[in-house]
Amino acid sequence: MQDMNLSDLFVSLTSRIGLNYEFLATGYESQIWRDGFVTTLYLVALLIPVSLIFGLLFAACLTSGKLWLSSPVRGFVELTRNTPTLVQLMFSFLVLNTFVSNLVGGAQNNPLTPFFWVVAVVGLHIAALHAEAIRAGIEAVPASTIEAARGIGFSQFQILRYVEVPLAFRASLPAIVNNLINLVKLTTVGNAIAVSEITYASIMVWTQRDNVVSLMIAILLFFSIINLIVARIGLWVERKLAVPGYGI
């Protein structure tokens, strides 16, 4: 009941400054729109760990020195970096998905949903960018530091575990945070394959009404807030992990 009154109040207040949120008082449109916010947040929360895990995996493959490991990953990284994510998503959802259906013996057995394809395409795309950042970080670890570690008797694994990865992670952190902000923005491509995130939900509303401006303000604010939070957390981690004596 209270919720109803609050949304009524919001609608009448905003209509006074010329914005139209009348659909909030209706049935399925307001439901879709509210769910849109939740879906976007859920996508972001799921995609951040997925992209980081695969990013580490890709980086490990790229720096392994084994051609059979590094070249397929390198190929994927180049492909995903140099083609539009929207096209990748359409291709995966419309073409790869059909192949999968044929493989498992019919569409009815195919468990892969549009949501899965957004997570897969956006997650792996950002993972590729993470991997490049981490690889650059590993290559930036001074050779003298590794020599010194070897000198005091560290094994190859110990060098990786205690010297290279911690230093590389710190060096690549700003780039990773930047990638995560891109990740948040990329979730919007989901609307092209009917994942009910916030832009999809807004399209559903504004095609039946004429209130693009009102919906745009809400979307822009929403993304500004999410990305501010992501950037703040990134900054906080960066400060926590800062190596004394480096930077300012």
Partner: peptide, 17 residues
Amino acid sequence: KALPSQPESLLALQGGN
């Protein structure tokens, strides 16, 4: 599930979505 246009929708049907 609303897709950008009819061809995408039909492909989604063939893909089992």
